[in-house]
Design a protein around this nucleic acid. Structure first.
Length: 204
DNA sequence: TTCGTGATAGAG
DNA sequence: TCTATCACGAAG
């Protein structure tokens, strides 16, 4: 796998996302998502492979295949799930194309506004603000209008390289009903901001 | 454990 | 048109 780790604080460019979903998912752990006045460190992602992954939208949605074909790597793929929750993904197009689902953030800036968006009080633990894909979109105000937004051209809506995780753990994806054995979820295992703590994986 | 909620796609 | 499905979260 190609290693791409720009120096800390550098805006992540389109070439980062011009790689496979697994590479991008893994290396986004520890990076910073800036979204307007909000920012957070990415501590949990999942990879969805657009070619032979039954859990990926491209597998069962024509519109997703059209989206991949008509957009550049590094744009947002946002959709509503269960009629309630917006899911925030990034389109990646390398040797393989697909999506990276951003599942949890460690909030850095805009925390009070996140609490307002989440309709939570100051008593709510910080670790509950963005610990899940639906929670983080609500906290940052990400909605359907952001579908297709380019995340590689506007410094206010971009990813920035950050300190690498202390313990990068790879484990099975959660919340899906097919292809559940693919270990395509990545977490910063030391973070208290995860949606679900992964089981301790036995050594190979 | 249950339930709310809406876009999507495929069947009829 | 109708219906099943869905990468979730909160309340109880």
């Amino acid at each position: 796998m190609a290693i791409y780790r720009p120096s800390i604080g550098q805006m992540i460019g389109r070439e980062f996302f011009s790689r496979s979903p697994l590479e991008c998912s893994r290396e986004l752990i520890g990076s910073i998502l800036r979204w307007g006045n909000f920012s957070g460190r990415i501590v949990e992602t999942e990879a969805y492979d657009g070619e032979d992954d039954p859990a990926c939208h491209t597998f069962f949605r024509t519109s997703a295949r059209v989206f991949v074909a008509t957009h550049e790597a590094g744009v947002a793929y946002v959709y509503l799930n269960y009629g309630i929750h917006w899911m925030f993904n990034v389109l990646v197009k390398g040797r393989r194309s697909g999506f990276v689902l951003i599942r949890a953030l460690d909030p850095q800036t805009g925390i009070e506004a996140m609490r307002v968006n989440r309709k939570r009080t100051a008593l709510t633990p910080l670790t509950h603000l963005c610990s899940g894909p639906g929670k983080l979109t609500q906290a940052l105000g990400i909605q359907g209008g952001d579908h297709g937004r380019d995340l590689c051209s506007d410094p206010c809506y971009s990813f920035y390289s950050g300190p690498p995780p202390k313990v990068l753990q790879q484990c099975p994806r959660i919340g899906i009903s097919t292809a559940m054995d693919y270990p395509w979820r990545f977490v910063a295992a030391e973070s208290p901001h995860l949606s679900v703590r992964p089981a301790i994986m036995p050594l190979p």
